[in-house]
């Protein structure tokens, strides 16, 4: 096979956008295995599988799994210690 066996995390925008109200395309996630933070868009996503598997680009451990049934979805983020999102500045009180 000449094609890369994975695609980049930008492909998660649609599937995760179905689950979250926030835009994850600009989120940062930290790998629970090696501790490296990086953009969700930088994950290596294996999509030729029963679900989507997002792996750390540094250590290749699993950071995210998303399984979509016709009427349900499961998101497993145990491989990520945090997700960081850009937010609008707090309004002064």
């Amino acid at each position: 096979m000449t094609a890369l066996p994975y695609v980049d995390g930008n492909m998660l925008d649609g599937p995760l956008g179905e689950v979250f109200a926030v835009d994850l395309s600009s989120a940062t996630a930290r790998c629970a295995n090696c501790g490296t933070p990086g953009p969700v868009a930088g994950l290596r996503v294996y999509s030729h599988a029963p679900g989507l598997v997002g792996r750390c680009p540094t250590c290749v451990e699993v950071m995210l799994r998303l399984v979509r049934a016709p009427d349900r979805a499961w998101l497993d983020l145990r491989g990520a210690t945090f997700l960081q999102f850009p937010m609008p500045p707090d309004r002064p009180r």
Partner: peptide, 9 residues
């Protein structure tokens, strides 16, 4: 015989 994989081979 589709190839399915959740990670590198």
């Amino acid at each position: 015989f589709p190839v399915l994989s959740a990670g590198p081979t």
